[in-house]
Design a binder for these strands. Sequence first.
DNA 1: TCTGGGGTCCTAGGACCC
DNA 2: TCTGGGGTCCTAGGACCC
Length: 382
Amino acid sequence: MRRTIFHIDVNSAFLSWTAVRRLQDGLPDIREVPSVVSGDPSDRRSIITAASIPAKRLGIKTAQPVSMALRICPDLVLVRGDWEWYRTCSEGFISICRTYSPVLQQFSIDECFLDMTFRLQGKDPVETATALKDEIRSKLGFTVNVGIGSNKLLAKMASDFEKPDKVHTLWEEEVQEKMWPLGVRDLLWVGKRTEERLLAYGIRTIGDLARTGTGALTRLVGRKAALQLHENANGIDFSPVETEFREAKSYSAERTFPKDISDPRQLDRALFNVTCIVAHRIRKDAFKASCISVFIKYRDFSVVQRQCRISQPTDITALLLHEARRLVSEIWDQATPLRQVGVGLSKLTHDDSDQLSLFEDPQLEYYRAWDRSYDESYPAKP
DNA sequence: TCTGGGGTCCTAGGACCC
DNA sequence: TCTGGGGTCCTAGGACCC
């Protein structure tokens, strides 16, 4: 039996979902005009989160600064994101997909893989995928692309072909015809830097990559990535559709300043805020952290990061903030302008062995009470 | 035009141990 | 006086994804 994987990808997810919401309120369909979902348009540093197809046709892209997009298209319709609504849409889309196969891996808020190998029972995969996409469109009001392949990589590559509202196949025997002519950047896991290195070596298409020996590739991108790229360019991928829920391994929060700052007090306020947010989030998920890191970003986008172990895993904001301040003082000269500051928590555990120390240090009780009151006032922080 | 926020994984070098 | 090889853990930085 042929292994058959579907990859379902919501077309311009945040934009489509916002459009559905606005249609319910009797507003025009923003999918039909140049429009984007973005952060606060008055903040010159906000960027495009999602763009409509008419906007993309004008050259507007995800992750572009809003100011640049407005220069391209002064009439651009800008809308703000609504994360709670997006979660609702995502759940609706995932639950329809799940009725087609229980072997489902959610890959992000707007993408999932389905292992259809034992679900087709002689039915044509393209017909089944078309039924799935049409059911989502008629029940939820937004379109998806479905990519069909004999593994996850090929299914995902296929869903990225012509959009929107399309079903495409990419079977192993179609790799040469449909995938090899594409530029290397179109291959999953080939980003900007890898593309640069490959181009410098004369590797332009996925086909070029497929025919390059792993020895040469190793010198360009390292051993592990070389083996992966070589396999993927040849359409090979053995990774299973993982149905298990995976707990997060790290949490982080960061803030980019509207203007670069060099005032230590401003930095400290931001550090306090991001530490509160990230500590709140681990408490909500009943984690404690044994490792904390801080990172600062300079004007030129260079990042310096410092981390340390925490002897006793903790979720107490005050203790984390104390470490964060110490780490920042080790890496920042309190003068060079900063663009961004962030705090990350990792080496997470669910253990609650530090409860004992509550009876030893009254200060900790005070800290915990402070955190409880914070958690009550910000119950739905994303 | 001037570049967000939140994640995962890999690599390379140093410390330390046997 | 000069010194191997392997393993593990940690850190900093970098690449990728959505």
